[in-house]
Amino acid sequence: MVKRAVIVGAGIAGLAAALRLHRIGWEPVLVERAPARRTGGYVVAFFGRGYDAAERMGVLPALRERHSGPVGMTYLKPDGRHRYTVPSRTVSALLGERGLTLMRGDIEAALYEQVDGRVPIRFGTTLTAVRQHPGGVHIELDDGATIDADLLVGADGLHSKVRELVFGPEEGFRRDLGHMIAATTLDHQPPGAPEHAFTTVSRIGHLFTIANLGPGRTAAFFTWGTPDPAAELAKDPRQALAEVFHDIPWTAAGLIASLPAGGLYYDSVSQIVSDRWSEGRVVLLGDAAWCVTLFAGYGSSLAVAGAESLGTFLESRPDDVPAALRAWEADLRPEAEKRQALGRRNSGTHSPASRLDLLKRDLPLRLAALPPVTRLLGRRLRIHG
């Protein structure tokens, strides 16, 4: 008898899980709260276990087609004067031959192409209730429909509804790192930001980057430290950005004023810390389970790796779904926890809290073109990747 899975969330983790389960003979159904597939997103490095998993799932050629190629890193003073540059050849060496630079939306698009027409997706829908029984899980949706399945996958992100209904309120799992983040795609390239480059301006406590991967592929990323993320979240995002970045004259004010009211990702930098990712036939995946944060730089890779691995363990234990979920978690958890620890350590890199933090970030980057330093930083980037 064919097994059925309901996957909540049609982002990277959910799409990858749908593809993997479809490939092993399951019948997945995707449930997505948004009314349509989201596009865009910030720039990510895709490597390590995620790259290997994408290769095994046959998605790698589509991802390589979207790879930006060599990208440099330019650091400016707040007034726009040049500080230093890490050449694109050095950045490529740091990422390695089995690494890609992509927009987050590129990964979703490549996965969506594989599931489109094969896996039903119910947009504009979310779940309202979950009830487990020995043989499966009963799911109720907000449109009045019900689904009986063998497995429920919560791939619905940091603010997971599946986690709330099955494991408890978000407050019991969320760990704020004392920073805020805002990110959006841009329909233009700001003056002074070179093509195929990450252009970064930072001062004590805050940083912003304009990332350009070529024509029509530009994104902006802002982050800053705060003792009270809840107070920042209560503000209008553009108001908060204007207050924090008012003392950076180079392009920040005009860029913030031009940001669209919608399409801006704005949240505190938070991790999800839980002592278990599954309960019976319900499992959490991706940011819903572990959320390593953008500071770790591995969330997309780990989402694809986790989804591919989930299918492997379910295929190896077809008659005991809960045991498969426990074995999957035991295999993946050490990697997720290592990446979470890296994200916590990297907060000083993304939002320097002192001149010492700036120095600790800048010195290795200034020396990165030297082969020994390139190798050292590359090993650090690809830890167990």
Rank of each mutant, 00 (worst) to 15 (best):
T184D: 05
E32H: 04
I272K: 02
A110F: 02
F47P: 09
T74R: 15
N212R: 15
I24R: 00
A327E: 15
E279L: 10
R81M: 12
L363I: 15
G205R: 01
P372W: 03
Y51N: 00
G136M: 05
A34H: 12
G306T: 03
P322W: 03
I12T: 07
E97R: 14
E32Y: 04
A155N: 01
R81E: 15
S300H: 04
G216S: 10
P318Q: 05
D247M: 02
R118G: 03
G99K: 13
R104T: 14
V91D: 04
G144R: 06
A34I: 06
V283F: 04
G205T: 09
A18W: 05
A289W: 08
D320M: 06
Y112T: 13
L127Y: 04
K360P: 04
D150W: 08
R23I: 01
I272E: 06
A45S: 15
I204A: 10
R355P: 10
A327K: 02
G178A: 05
G348A: 03
I210L: 07
L95Q: 09
S268W: 12
A230F: 14
P229R: 07
L314W: 14
L186W: 12
G280R: 02
A193G: 11
G50W: 07
W277K: 11
L111S: 02
D287H: 14
P371I: 05
V244L: 12
Q239M: 13
L207M: 13
P227N: 09
R333F: 01
D142P: 00
R37N: 08
M103A: 14
V269Y: 01
K360Y: 11
R317A: 15
P237S: 03
F221K: 08
E32I: 05
L377S: 12
L213T: 00
V91I: 15
G286T: 13
A323K: 06
